[in-house]
């Protein structure tokens, strides 16, 4: 518990940032516009994202709801789900799906744990989740330097209404992801990921409550390591 992975600490801070106002995502034709405007990590962090990155440091506990839509080409309709999340800086992130199914996972400095009913499934899912954990960390924390190493970056808009785009630089990342777009202002409002099969995942963050005080005992208990 004592050794702290600085990158994960950054991730937690970023989750604070993730907690936006729940503004709806930008229109898709804006995407074409976005990907015609290449940018760099330095430009983004000192320009478009400066206010947002400053905001990351201020909150210790962030709670909110999310709305997620997963569009899979071969499925008859998009998969929509809603739920809530809790981010406690220094401890971790809980992502809880409430409708139409109940499922949750908890990311801590020690890694990932699953608290769903399907006790017998963890290995396969752990491998799967582990495979994208680093990317999640970089994405949720808006760690532009880390993202810059794997993606070509694009940026558009103003510091109150910005969008950044990412396309894989390397063959490895390109094997899984086609492009990523993030929209926001002072906070992140939405993230959209398109995979190589053309399926899209869109997450919107809503009703964010953030404060700089300590997490309470119940909140801390969520991140306590549990017996296997």
């Amino acid at each position: 518990m004592t050794d702290q992975d600085p990158r994960r600490a950054v991730l937690l801070a970023l989750m604070v940032f993730l907690a936006g106002d729940g503004v709806a995502a930008a229109a898709s034709d804006a995407a074409a516009e976005l990907f015609s405007r290449p940018s760099t990590a330095r430009e983004l962090s000192s320009g478009l994202l400066k206010d947002a990155l400053d905001e990351i440091g201020r909150s210790t506990v962030v709670e909110g709801k999310f709305r997620q839509q997963r569009t899979v080409r071969k499925l008859p309709r998009p998969l929509q789900s809603t739920g809530d999340f809790l981010l406690v800086r220094q401890l971790g992130l809980r992502w809880r799906t409430l409708e139409p199914i109940q499922d949750e996972f908890v990311l801590t400095r020690q890694g990932l744990s699953l608290k769903s009913q399907q006790r017998n499934l963890p290995r396969a899912r752990r491998i799967e989740l582990g495979a994208v954990t680093d990317l999640m960390f970089a994405l949720f924390s808006l760690d532009v330097d880390a993202l810059d190493r794997r993606f070509a970056l694009f940026g558009d808009g103003s510091s109150t209404n910005w969008q950044i785009g990412m396309r894989p630089r390397d063959r490895a990342t390109a094997g899984a992801i086609r492009q990523v777009t993030v929209h926001g202002g002072l906070h992140v409002d939405s993230i959209a990921i398109v995979n190589t099969a053309g399926d899209e995942l869109r997450v919107e963050l809503l009703g964010i409550v953030a404060h700089g005080g300590e997490a309470d005992a119940a909140q801390r208990a969520i991140f306590e390591p549990h017996s296997p």
């Binding site: 997620q68 997963r70 998969l79 789900s81 992502w95 799906t97 139409p100 199914i101 499922d103 996972f105 769903s116 009913q117 399907q118 017998n120 499934l121 899912r125 799967e128 989740l129 495979a131 994208v132 999640m136 899984a176 992801i177 990921i193 995979n195 399926d199 995942l201 997450v203």
Partner: peptide
């Protein structure tokens, strides 16, 4: 439950 959890998981895009 496991199948549905995976389908609705935010990180299932890499599956």
């Amino acid at each position: 439950q496991g199948a549905l959890a995976t389908l609705y998981s935010p990180i299932a895009f890499a599956r």
